[in-house]
Each structure stands twice: as structure tokens, then as C-alpha cells.
Amino acid sequence: MGKAVKIALAGEGGQGVQSVAMILTDAAAMEGKEILYIPNFGVEQRGGVSIAFVQIGDEKIGAPKFKTGDIVVALSDRAVRRVGMYVGPETVFIYDAGIKGVEDDIPQDAQRILAIPALETANQELHPRVFNVLIMGAVIGATHVVALEKAKEAIEKKLGYKFEQNPELREMNFKALERGYEMVTGTGVA
């Protein structure tokens, strides 16, 4: 891994983008990576678009915010409009395929644009609650910033107490992670 990978994750409050950032960065920390994670914590945190700026690399990270992300993820129509500014010709732009009315707002100059059926998959195959974990899988699939197994460890660390009571929840979370990963890599995970 050369330069740090820059990730911007945006969604509505309650969609869990900050939790994704937290678990993802925890996993990276376990791998001994250098990380800088800054939530967008302005007045927007109440009833606005929530953004997590995450950078993961092997060397000390420089500035906390960046102009252009390597991976930009938008999980709602407002998020799509809000994060367009962080998209450049090198960016992989990922958004949920179920978002309506954003045809004109999808950034045109991105290197790659991926519409993934994250919400639909979570709702129909898994559980709406694991939507954000699925997104985390997609981010890992697109960046390989951490090993999938480390991500599972981090999930275990964060939600282990819930899994104790309900082991099915563990299965569902790990499944969601893998489904998200596959959606982007298209290769499946062994």
C-alpha cells in the first residue's frame, strides 16, 4: 500500500455511516495501519447528511480532509448531491441503486461508477439493520484497505455482546459483509 486510501462515506443520519467508519478504522488499527478518521460533525449532524472522511495507509496520514476521495460512497439522494465535490477522475463512486431522482446528480467524471443494490439486498435477503455492514463490505471490496477477516474481528469486538445473546446476528452481519464485498469485487469470497 503506497499512498493512503481516501474514503468519503455519506448517508442520512441513522444510516450508520459513522459506525461503518468506526468499525472499518478499528479493523485497520488492529492491522497496525495508520488511520485518520474525521466525522463531519457540524450542525449537519442533526438532521443532515452525515459524512465520514477516512484515510488508511502505511505511513502517518497528512491533512484530515481531502479534496478528492479514492472511494466515495453515497447512500441517499441528498448524500449523492452532497459528496459530488469529493469526486475526481481517479475516484470510484459507489451509490445505492435504489436511490431515486439522482440521475442528473451522479458525478460524470469518476473513474468508475458503481450502483449497488445494497438496500434491496439488506431488506430482502438479510435484515435492514445490517445495511451499513453490507456497505462496509463494499468499501473493503473496492479498496482492500483491510482483510475481510479483520473486519469480522472488529465487528465481533463492537457487537460481540449482542452476538452472545443472539448468535444468528453474528451470521447475518458476516453474511452482509461478504455480500457487500462480492457486489464490488464480483468474485465472491472463499
Partner: peptide, 10 residues
Amino acid sequence: DGYQAKMRES
């Protein structure tokens, strides 16, 4: 500053 206050790093 607020960035240093709120961001996470190692």
C-alpha cells in the same frame, strides 16, 4: 482545533 478534537488517529 475541531479537527484534532474530533478526528481519530493513532
